[in-house]
Design a protein around this nucleic acid. Structure first.
Lengths: 255, 255
DNA sequence: CGTGACCTTGAATTAGCTCAATGACGGTGG
DNA sequence: CCACCGTCATTGAGCTAATTCAAGGTCACG
């Protein structure tokens, strides 16, 4: 399935012409939820107006794959709401999730002329779609945008290297603790309160594919942490963490 | 151990003042082995002269660690010869090698204000050292350099994601095949000849730490490939591959 | 209230690890 | 020149963390 097929069609509830109309005069961008996040925050209002002309807003339903690994990388994306999983697959179906990305995330850095990963919406996702060609032109005009993208790429590289350490050398317990702690950092950033509460959009299978484990091992490991009083689980995908620092200690491989 | 201590001293055979003198007038850069590679190839001769003023050439003996994870990232590096291993460690000594990098590679992308990894010379390494501050100034002046760095970062991200798939989902056999095939691509780039011969600068322990395995498993796996006739091993760290395509098939997880 | 997707738990299996012994190689000093 | 030593690589034997296979349980939704 090609990306153009995915993005050009199959969005009956949000016809393209109306979306484009909505972007006129930069209204959509200047009042956008991610105005202060992501690449947009590197631009002033005038520059943003340029960017807006190249953007098309689309909505992706849960479970829909909208980037196929190895297909032509003709478009970049900027997520404005929802959560997306990025993954690679082996021919026999084994899957590795490279990351879960949400609001403000720019999609299309790990790209030559073909996408290096597939992308699928976990919950309902809204995003801005850019033609790669047009965006590159805009980038040429605004060096600040270029620098911003380099910074984004640097951050992603740091995250990728942390994940390599996790996948190559951490135990199941350390992996799950790392994941939970990482999600808390995303949610609360700087310092995480005691009894921090998280609600995950992703399934156990997704977590397993992110951590290089099986569903069963993830489930057993979380149960283990629960028995030790390190986490409490609630309805849906809710997990609370009484003492985040203990989780962090485990995540770091210090015990 | 701080980076400045490592880079400022301990290079008795190559005193700094002479090195700096050698860079005058861009001579050193314009005739440099990596002139056509890495970030330097993004610049014309005049621009390169600017860069040269900020560069200090240093030589690192085998086994010397010259970047310490989490120390202040005050300097960037550009490798002109030799091979460097980049790695992260856990408190108990478990180690994950993020990659082996050689000629033309720019070191310092996966960085916030502290290094995200440690770096150690495998064989004798020569590199250009830049003050981070000065290099950032130069980058501001030359947008082509900025774009080049983003491309470098994008390529590293793609490689990191391939490695995540390897570490999270591939078998030992697939990992070793991937490594050998990857080394062949580095050596021969496009199409790899039959009976391609490789000489590795790194030990089995390094390969193990790169692939998320133990030394013993790497050794046994290579022995297994030898018994199957997929590789032949020679003296030193030499390995030949009669049919690279078969190795590639295994690396991709297709059998 | 039936169905399907997801989660949990148990039992048995196994890929890769740990521990241990031996061998190959290269440098060093007598 | 060769005996010694340390580092690195290989191989074997047994172990274990995580997987596979299997069985229920929970929950949302039509």
């Amino acid at each position: 399935m090609s990306v153009s097929a995915l993005t050009a069609g199959n969005i009956p509830s949000y016809p393209r012409r109306i979306v484009i109309a909505g972007m006129d005069g930069c209204q959509a961008c200047s009042v956008c939820e991610v105005r202060a996040h992501g690449i947009c925050s590197a631009l002033n209002d005038d520059e943003l107006a340029q960017l807006a002309k190249a953007a098309v807003r689309v909505t992706i339903p849960p479970g829909r794959q909208f980037i196929e690994e190895d297909s032509d990388a003709g478009e970049f994306f900027n997520i404005t709401s929802g959560t997306v999983k990025l993954f690679k697959s082996l021919p026999d179906g084994r899957r590795q999730i490279m990351g879960f990305v949400g609001i403000g995330h720019f999609l299309g850095l790990a790209v030559s002329d073909r996408y290096a990963f597939s992308a699928e919406a976990i919950d309902q996702v809204r995003l801005c779609r850019f033609s790669r060609e047009r965006l590159e032109t805009i980038i040429d005009e605004f060096p600040r945008l270029e620098r911003r993208l380099r910074n984004e790429a640097a951050n992603e590289l740091v995250a990728a290297q942390d994940q390599m350490l996790l996948l190559g050398r951490k135990t199941a317990r350390e992996r799950v603790a790392s994941f939970l702690y990482g999600q808390m950092v995303e949610r609360y950033s700087d310092d995480i309160p005691r009894n921090a509460r998280l609600i995950f959009p992703m399934t156990r299978a997704d977590i397993a594919d992110f951590l290089g484990l099986t569903v069963e091992t993830v489930s057993r490991t979380i149960s283990g942490l629960r028995r030790e009083g390190l986490v409490t689980t609630g309805a849906g995908h809710e997990i609370s963490v009484p003492t985040p620092s203990r989780l962090q200690t485990i995540a770091r491989g210090e015990e």
